[in-house]
Simulated scan of single mutants.
Amino acid sequence: MKHIVFYDDNPDFGGHQFMAMRGVAAANRCPDFRTTFVLNPNNDRLKAHTDAIIQEGGKLEVRYSPVVTKKFQALRNHVSGKALDDLARAFNELQADLIVCLQGEIEDSSLALLAGKKAGCRVMSYIPVAHTMEQMGAKLGALRDRTTGYLFRTPDCWMTISQCIADMLRRRGADAPIHIVENGIDTTRFVPRDAATLRQEQGLPDGLLFGICGRVEFNQKQQHFLVNAMSRWPDELARAKLLVVGDGPDCARLKQIIAELGLTERIILRAWEKQPETLYPALDCLIIPSRFEGFPLVMLEAAACGVPVIGSDNDGMHDFLPEPWRFPQGDEAGLINALKAAINNPAALVNQQRQVVLENHTLQQFEDRFVETLVRELP
């Protein structure tokens, strides 16, 4: 029986971890694997997911990492000799056949890449984002990028979520095999529903209604760009309303911008919804104006509900969305053109996008491909 150790010492929880944990659950159900998860003891949301997996099957062993990812981790790795030794010793004791490091970006859990190699184990990186720190707007991003090059040469193999990200990994120096396992969703949960009924149930207005769903964080998600652009929309869109769903560090600033622009009557703010399937079908279009993404789950979920999705022409959105529904990141004119294209497109194109999800992006397909990739890379 092969022993797979999943590792994530990040203190935060994001979309890539939500998706990866479905892969961990699938691996845990595989009779040919023994599975262990090493995690940050302070990451309660991640711990809740490991607890749920144990309740499903009971086989997953959970351990706590002796180290935690911090800012400038790529640089810290060079002066973390004791922590590196402690982690390598822990991996030796586990006798792992494959260590899978869950990395939101290249610095996350990066000490484990080095420790796994030092322990003589085969190491895989599961990574949804390969953008530079400078591209992501990180503090001192250009400087931090100069410290990360060696990490792209460390793993024995990679698992990522789109061709765009795979190409980005190659440009950044990754020369080991790269496997693409695109995200999947529960297509029995995300289905078309009657918009009028949902709007009545959710207290949403009649008329043209657009939406944006995700963490309220301007640097990546660009809610402020969308709101500013909305204040200048032309006559045919001027009566449209916007539903903003999410929580995050820029909520207060977003409310301030909305008030300053006089848009309080046209923008509806909602906290993150645990049942987004009750909101997507109420929309005329979902908008993803992000500066960078991996392969957004909200994009697949809305498309499965039969809702047009427009987004910045980058990353997984470039791979998935038809050209008329994409616009250059930060381009207001392009955004308006994409909106018009989405709301005026024939139902056939909307149905076509939904069919792509049903045929290629189910949760079962993701889990199967995740496990198949693990098998392929086991020694």
Rank of each mutant, 00 (worst) to 15 (best):
I4D: 11
N10M: 13
D12E: 15
F18H: 13
G23A: 04
V24T: 04
A27W: 05
A27H: 07
C30D: 15
H49A: 11
D51L: 10
I53H: 08
G57V: 00
G58T: 01
K59D: 06
E61C: 13
E61L: 15
Q73K: 12
S80E: 09
A83Y: 06
A83V: 05
L84C: 09
A90M: 15
I99D: 03
G104Y: 14
G104K: 11
I106V: 15
L114S: 04
G116Q: 12
K118M: 12
K118N: 06
R122P: 01
M136P: 03
G141F: 10
R144D: 12
G149S: 13
D156A: 08
C157R: 06
W158K: 07
I161Y: 08
I165N: 14
A166Y: 07
A166W: 06
D167P: 00
M168E: 14
R171N: 12
A176W: 04
A176R: 03
H179Q: 10
D186R: 09
D194Q: 10
A195L: 01
R199N: 03
E201A: 14
F210R: 00
I212N: 09
R215P: 02
R215E: 11
K221I: 04
Q223K: 07
H224N: 11
H224T: 09
F225N: 01
L226W: 02
V227H: 00
R232I: 05
E236Y: 06
V244T: 03
G246F: 05
C251E: 15
A259K: 05
E260S: 09
I268S: 00
Q275P: 01
T278V: 07
P281L: 05
I288P: 04
P289F: 06
V298Q: 07
G306V: 04
P308N: 03
D313L: 03
N314H: 11
D315P: 00
W325F: 13
P328G: 01
P328A: 10
G334F: 01
G334P: 00
I336T: 12
A338T: 02
A342S: 09
N344E: 12
N344R: 13
A348P: 00
L349F: 10
V350F: 02
V357H: 00
L358T: 06
L358N: 09
E359P: 00
V375T: 12
